[in-house]
Computed example of a mutant assay.
Amino acid sequence: MKGKPVLSIVTPTRGNFSDFWINELLRIQGNVEFVLVYPPGVSPRPIQDSRVKSLVSPYRGEMMQRFVALLNATGDYVLALDDDDLAHPDIVELVIKYFERFPDSWVLRLKKAVIDFRDIDAIKKEWTGIPDIDQLDVCKKTAADPNPYRNGNYEGLLEVPIAPLELRFDVRWLFFPFFERKDNYGYHFENFNNIVWNNQLVQKTLPVLAQTTQMLGAITWIPSSGFDRLSGLFVQAVSYQRDLIIGHWLPGDEQIRYVDKPAAMKPPRFHVISDFLLVKRFPQYGYFWNLFFSKLYGVPRAIAKLIRLKLTKNQPPINALVTEEQGETVKAKG
């Protein structure tokens, strides 16, 4: 790799990723670096590619490993993947062309295909071509056309606004625990993964996030999970400008393949713990209070699911599928 990378692709991993996944990752062309962060006590797998940077986190856990990965991302732009997510081999070319046309954008939101972990054909099929950025019109939400999204069938670059953080806290959450939250509806987004970010904004955010984990002066509290939404919203909050268009959503068939499995097979997640950090650092934003309370009332159900899994010993599998044809393991999300 010559010079500063255009794109850093960062991934926390337990080290049990499949050969298929790493081989697909290394198919990505262009000036790219891959930052893999392992938990303590796990030796990085030997990978013969100078673009790969293998690190060991000082502490175990999704959030800490992702944080270490982002701290060591040196590219102009950064893309976070799990160690079974797949990205288009020509993603770097796509990133270069997009940010040449929109140099002030914060994000390029990629078209993501959600694929069942048992659908080996969909996971392994060849990629179609990438969209030609220069030939795409910009789709805007206007009074004349309030729904340019049209159920995902847009043909141009769909404008993506910043999350509406200034919304007021809905006090009904204090009295109706299962009241439906609707302020997360719309073209904005909350997550960080599978989206290309301007790395200057990300690096600006990391010190603020680190400071927010400090409790009572001498205690540092780092949740083990929930970093995806936490970091996506934290970046938007640190540099918040009301009603700002922060990027675009790409059309096309797919530029990301997200390998998924049914909710019943996933371990319970206590996202309210990481959501608390948003409220702690940005108490002025009602959007975060709505998010916090909506997840707070889900904690008993998460605990019940955890107990049920422990009693039945029905832990979700890590390596769930092996293809009969080639004997290649495809990891399901855990």
Rank of each mutant, 00 (worst) to 15 (best):
I120R: 08
E325L: 13
E155D: 07
L7M: 01
P131Q: 04
E126Y: 08
V95K: 03
F176M: 02
L309K: 09
L110D: 07
S54W: 00
D83K: 03
I123T: 09
I303F: 14
E126H: 12
Y149R: 04
Q241N: 08
I130S: 02
W249E: 12
W127K: 02
V279G: 00
F117A: 11
G61S: 11
E159I: 01
D145T: 10
T220V: 13
H271N: 12
V78G: 01
L79C: 05
I273A: 09
A143R: 14
G334H: 01
R172T: 15
K2T: 15
L206I: 14
D19K: 09
F67M: 12
L230W: 04
E126G: 12
A69K: 01
R229C: 06
V196C: 10
V279C: 03
K310T: 14
G217W: 10
L321W: 04
T13N: 08
P251H: 11
Q135M: 14
Q315A: 12
I246C: 04
L108S: 01
V272K: 05
M265A: 01
D137E: 09
G30S: 09
G247P: 01
I9E: 03
L94D: 03
N319Q: 13
W289Y: 11
A87F: 07
L108K: 02
R168P: 15
S231D: 07
R181P: 06
W197N: 00
Q211R: 11
V6M: 14
R257K: 15
W106E: 08
D104R: 07
T142K: 10
N23Q: 15
N198D: 08
R281I: 10
P89W: 05
G232D: 08
I303Y: 08
D76R: 06
A113I: 13
A163M: 05
Q255A: 14
G252Y: 07
H248Q: 10
I162E: 02
F270R: 10
A218R: 11
D228M: 06
L110K: 02
I47K: 05
M215W: 13
H248A: 09
P148L: 07
K204Q: 11
E254P: 00
Y187R: 05
N193I: 04
S274F: 07
G327A: 13
M215S: 14
I133K: 00
P148I: 11
K204C: 11
V42Q: 10
T312K: 06
T220R: 09
V6S: 06
N193C: 03
L306N: 05
N314G: 11
P58R: 11
V138A: 05
W127F: 11
Q135A: 14
F17I: 02
N193E: 03
A320M: 14
N184A: 09
P146L: 10
N23K: 13
S105F: 00
R301S: 15
A332V: 15
